[in-house]
């Protein structure tokens, strides 16, 4: 078999990782504040369809992405109101977002179903860097968002670990009562980060559509990437930099079925190969569940717990 194919597969893995990293960073910021937003898949779909429709209508790539981000903001704001202000069950609220986003993206995407993507995010031309064998196509063959995303993960990591607001954020997820006693509004911290998280998820969906999607079709667009991102949060132990490594790994498992199919390698039927990313994710979750791994992980302690000040 051609070794070029595997270089391209790795390049694609890095590319898909962009969506995964963006969505995972969004989920990490949300969950670090103590809010769990399971609506990732719904937000990705809505971001994707919005970017497609706006791109189709205006031909403006940037406008398409900005609106995808805004849709992410709007949907996560709904989640924030339900989860934080109204203290509704966060699990069910997130699922409702998935179902709502699933239906609405199909509904508003119906007129453009099967149409090819109107505008595209093109890879950067990095000149001689892209010509380096092996590393060139894998690392230097991407668009600006891929590199911004890597930088974004670094910024997130510094923010969480080296800044005061980052400390407050971590404390809000672990010990909201203490944060509250310091006179900081727990609700505000959670609101802000849930919404920033949603913005990143919206961008993840929009980018995925315009950089990797060929045509809009709801069934084939995100295909569970949102759920994989949620597993990735656990895999990355709620740490932004680890999300990059995990995303590339998961991106690889998502890409391998296509490579095998493209190469007509029929060691396994395509339907079985399609299961592999999900089985691999499940396997990783199992590995992370051992008591030893759990100790190292350190999930936010009050994840999914609404904060009510004890006044009586």
């Amino acid at each position: 078999m051609n070794s070029n194919v595997w270089i391209l597969t790795f390049a694609d893995a890095f590319s898909i990782a962009t969506t995964l990293i963006l969505a995972t960073l969004g989920a990490i910021l949300t969950e670090r504040s103590g809010v769990i937003n399971l609506g990732v898949e719904g937000i990705l779909l809505m971001g994707a369809v919005t970017a497609f429709l706006v791109g189709d209508g205006t031909g403006n790539l940037w406008l398409a992405l900005v609106l995808a981000v805004l849709v992410g903001v709007a949907m996560s704001a709904v989640h924030a109101v339900l989860a934080i202000t109204l203290r509704a069950n966060q699990i069910v609220a997130g699922l409702a977002l998935v179902i709502f986003g699933n239906g609405l993206s199909q509904f508003i995407g119906k007129p453009v179903e099967g149409k090819t993507r109107p505008v595209s995010i093109e890879p950067l031309n990095l000149g001689p860097l892209s010509d380096i064998p092996v590393i060139g196509p894998i690392v230097f063959g991407h668009d600006i968002f891929t590199y911004l995303t890597w930088a974004g993960a670094l910024v997130c990591s510094l923010y969480l670990n080296r800044t005061r607001p980052g400390l407050v954020l971590r404390a809000t997820g672990d010990a909201p009562a203490t944060v509250d006693a310091q006179g900081v509004s727990v609700a505000r911290v959670r609101f802000v980060h849930t919404i920033i998280g949603g913005a990143l998820m919206g961008l993840a969906g929009g980018w995925f559509m315009l950089a990797r999607g060929t045509a809009w079709s709801q069934a084939a667009t995100t295909n569970g990437i949102g759920w994989i991102a949620l597993s990735l949060v656990v895999f990355a132990a709620w740490r932004p930099l680890r999300a990059i490594a995990g995303a590339v790994l998961f991106g690889f498992t998502l890409q391998v079925p296509f490579t095998l199919q493209g190469q007509q390698i029929n060691i396994l039927p395509p339907e079985i190969v399609q299961m592999l990313p999900y089985l691999a994710t499940l396997f990783v979750l199992v590995m992370l569940s051992t008591p030893r791994a759990r100790k190292l992980l350190g999930a936010p302690k009050m994840l999914g717990q609404p904060f009510v000040r004890d006044e009586r």
Binding site: A93, L97, F100, G103
Partner: peptide, 9 residues
């Protein structure tokens, strides 16, 4: 499906 999601929200 839109209606279902909205009802739940």
């Amino acid at each position: 499906v839109v209606l279902q999601g909205a009802v739940l929200l």
